[in-house]
Design a protein around this nucleic acid. Sequence first.
DNA 1: ATGAAGTTGAACCGAGAAGTACAATCGACG
DNA 2: CGTCGATTGTACTTCTCGGTTCAACTTCAT
Lengths: 206, 206
Amino acid sequence: MSTTRGRIDKRQAILEGAFTVFARLGYAQAGVQDIAAEAGVAKPTVYNHMTDKATLFRHALEAAAQTVLSERLAALDPLATPGDDLPATLEGVAYELLRLHTDQRSCSLKRLLYSEITTFPDALDLVLDSGPHRLNQALADRLARLALSGRLRATDPDLAAEQFMALLTGPLEARTRMGTEQVTDAELRTMARAAVETFVRAWGTP
Amino acid sequence: MSTTRGRIDKRQAILEGAFTVFARLGYAQAGVQDIAAEAGVAKPTVYNHMTDKATLFRHALEAAAQTVLSERLAALDPLATPGDDLPATLEGVAYELLRLHTDQRSCSLKRLLYSEITTFPDALDLVLDSGPHRLNQALADRLARLALSGRLRATDPDLAAEQFMALLTGPLEARTRMGTEQVTDAELRTMARAAVETFVRAWGTP
DNA sequence: ATGAAGTTGAACCGAGAAGTACAATCGACG
DNA sequence: CGTCGATTGTACTTCTCGGTTCAACTTCAT
C-alpha cells in the first residue's frame, strides 16, 4: 500500500506546486513544465494524475480554498467564549482575520479567482460557496448569541456579520495595493481596532 | 487636418475595442486579431498605433480607469450642498456609487487589474493612484466640511471616508458573486440604506 | 493629376507551449 | 529473483498567436 501512499504524495505535491506556480505566473503564463518542476515531478506524471491543465487548475484552486476557509473559521473560535471585555475579544478575532486575509495564500487565491472567472465560471461554485458565505454564516451565528445575551443590538445578525467583515476587509484592498504589498503588523492592529471601534459604536447596546 | 481626426478616431476605436475584448476574454486569451475585428480595423493598423500588445493593454486600461474615476467623482457632488436631511443625501450618493460600482466597465476594470497585477505591476500605478485613492480623498473632504458644521463626528474624516466606502462596497463582492452577476435595483437601494444607516449610527453627532 | 500618408487583406515567420509516445528506470510485492 | 505498475527524461507533433512584410487601395493636399 505504500505505493498508493506514494501516489498520494505525488498528487499532493502536484496540487501544491500547481497552486504556487499559478499564483506566481497566472494561468496562461504558467507552463505545465514549470509546475512539474516546482512539484519535483516529471511532466508526464502530471498528466498521469490530471487529464488537463484546466482540471489541474480547478483541483489546485479547490484545495487552496478549503485550506483558507478552515483557517478563517478557526479564527472565529474565541467568539464562542467571549470574556468580560467584548471589544477586546472582537479586536483579537478581527486582528487574526486581517492577518489571514493578508497572507500569501489568501491573496493569491483571490487574484486567481478574479483573473480566471471569465474562463472558468464554474470555479466560483467550487470556491465561493464554501468561502465567504460560510464564514459570514458562522460569524452571524456567533453575533446572534451575543445579541441574545444582550451585549449587541438584536437586529439582523446577518447584516451585522456582513458589515463587520466589510469594515474589516474593505480598507485592506487599498492598504495592500490589491494584495501586492505587505502591511506591517502594527498597522494591522490599528486597522482591527478602528474597525471594531466603529462596529461597536454602531452595533453595541446603548 | 481631417486625416488627423481619422487617426484619432481609429485610435479611440482600437482602445475601446481592446478594453471590451480584454474584459471579455482576459489578456492572454484575447488575440490582437479579435481586438482589431472588434474595433473594425485591420491588424497592422493596431500595430501602427501601438507598438505592443502589452502597451495596448496599458493604454486601454488607463483610458477605462479615467472614465470610471470621473464618473465616481461626479457622483459625490450632492454632498457639496447637503439638504436638511443629511441621511437622505448620503443615501442618494451611496446608491449612485453602488450603481457605478456594479456596472460593466467598473467590474471588468477591477477584474482585469486583479488578474494582470503579476504580469503588469506598473498598471497599478496607472490606475490605483488615480483611482480609489482620489475618490477617498474627495469623500474625506466632503465629510470634513460636514463635520465642521457639526453634522458629523469631528474625528478623522479620512477614516470616516474609508469606512463609508467599506460599508458600501464591501458587501458588493459577495452579492454580485465577484462581479459576475447583476443585482436588482431594489437590492442596491436597500444596500445603500443599510450602509448609510450604520454609518450614521457610528459617525453621526449624538 | 500626383504624391504622400494611412489603411487593408493576406500571407508568412518564429517562438513557445499543450499534450503524447516511448524506451529506460525504479520500487514494491509475491 | 522476476514481474508489474508508476515514474522519468527526452524528443516529437501540432497548433496557436504575436509580430512583420508587402502589394494594392483609399483619401486628401497641393
